[in-house]
Computed example of a mutant assay.
Amino acid sequence: MMIELLRAASLGDVPHGFAGRQGGVSGGIHAGLNVGLGSEDERDAILRNRELARDALLPGAQLVTVRQVHSPDVVTVTAPIPEADRPAADAMVTDRPGLILGILTADCVPVLLADPEAGVVGAAHAGWKGALNGVTDRTVEAMEALGARAGRIRAAIGPCIGRASYEVTLDFARTFEDQDGGNARFFSAGREGHCQFDIAAYVAARLADAGLERVELLDEDTYSQPHRFYSYRRSCHRGESSYGRQISMIAVG
Rank of each mutant, 00 (worst) to 15 (best):
I46C: 06
D41K: 04
S165R: 01
G23Q: 05
R43D: 11
D44G: 07
R50G: 07
A118F: 08
V35N: 09
L58Y: 03
E192F: 06
L11D: 01
A31E: 14
G23N: 05
G38P: 05
D90A: 06
V14E: 04
R138V: 01
E4H: 13
H125E: 08
A19P: 00
G32W: 03
Q196E: 01
G190S: 04
L99A: 09
G211K: 03
L112T: 06
L5S: 15
V215P: 00
N133V: 08
A142I: 11
R234M: 02
S241T: 12
R233F: 07
Y166M: 14
A189Q: 14
V25S: 10
E177Q: 14
A124N: 02
G211E: 04
R245I: 01
P159R: 12
Q225L: 13
R154I: 00
G130R: 09
T169A: 10
L212E: 02
R67T: 14
C108G: 00
C160V: 10
F172E: 01
R50W: 05
A204W: 04
N34Y: 02
V74W: 04
F18G: 05
Y230K: 13
V64W: 09
A200F: 00
L57C: 10
Y230G: 14
D90Y: 04
H30C: 06
P116D: 05
A210R: 11
T78R: 15
D107L: 12
K129F: 08
R191I: 02
T222Q: 02
L170I: 07
A184F: 02
T169D: 11
T105K: 06
P110V: 07
G24E: 07
V109A: 07
A91R: 07
S241F: 06
S165P: 02
T76E: 12
G17S: 11
S165K: 04
D13V: 11
V215N: 04
D85Y: 02
Y243D: 02
D180S: 10
A200E: 00
P226F: 04
M143D: 08
F197W: 06
I199R: 01
D221A: 04
R54A: 07
D180H: 10
E216Q: 10
C108N: 15
R149I: 04
H237S: 13
V69D: 12
D95E: 10
A91S: 14
P87V: 12
V168N: 03
S10H: 02
G17D: 12
Q196K: 14
C236Q: 13
G38T: 08
A56D: 07
T139R: 05
G36V: 04
